[in-house]
Amino acid sequence: MAETQDPKKPGSNMSRRNFLKNTGLVAGGLIGGGLFGGLITNQMKKPANNGKKPAATANHDMDARTFFSRTDDFETLSAATERLYPEDKNGPGAIALSVPYFIDRQLAGDWGSNAHEYMKGPFPQNQESAYYENQSKDQNKQGPNADVQTPTPTPRYQTRMNRGEIFREGVKTLQDVANTKHKKKFAELEGEQMDAILTDFEEGKIRMNGIDSIAFFNLLLQTTVEGAYADPVYGGNRDMAGWKMKEYPGPRMGYLGQIEDEEFAVMKQESLRDYQDMWG
């Protein structure tokens, strides 16, 4: 494994000027008159981080809830995500990666309120939702473009609840089940007890209102994985530790100089913030 810091290779830590030079964008004449030209002069001439933007620091003030109002709910959510994505020899788990805050923030935004989804009735499947929501349990979606999709199941969405409401209902049900079975809060259970409950959700054995428990479980799993690996701008993947475990470098200009390399490239992580700074 090579530490790829060769400046001829655009994927490594290099300035935008070197990048342009080495990829032939300058030599190819595009800078002068071509359409790339206007772009570069408009967008790239400015020095990176010209002082108008606050410096990017690990700002833990952002670790506050804006969706879940009750501490108990958030602790239940946190404990569940940690079981799905636990701390281990590879590195931090969901809690240390700030996944619960990521989920909280996603639910507070337009994804949580299904702003871009068709939410008009009727909802004939709402009461007997099981059939449709069970239908697609395959790990991988298929069809063109399937390979770039999140490998979590995608049940057909036929409930009148939005994602935020599903999460509220789901977290509450997790607590109810913990209470009925063990007379304890979910977050206070032993790991195996939590796993048993989560497995019941995954297998559709838990009765929920307006949604199959499988659908909630799938959503929880999907958002947990997303929180571990989405750009840190969304509040998860703390310190890009998710990417480090995955040997994922973050967004780069490109890999024109490296795409043919046989060796695996180990690179330092950079974030969307770093990438945008590079464009000025």
């Binding site: 799905l84 636990p86 790990q139 989560l198 799993l221 994985v225 690996y229 994922y248």
Partner: peptide
């Protein structure tokens, strides 16, 4: 395609999907 880290979580069939 150039895989993103959220998409690239494929495991052999039979592997548990979480934990």
């Amino acid at each position: 395609y150039g895989h993103g880290p959220i998409a690239t979580n494929k495991v052999p069939r039979g592997t548990k999907q979480w934990g």
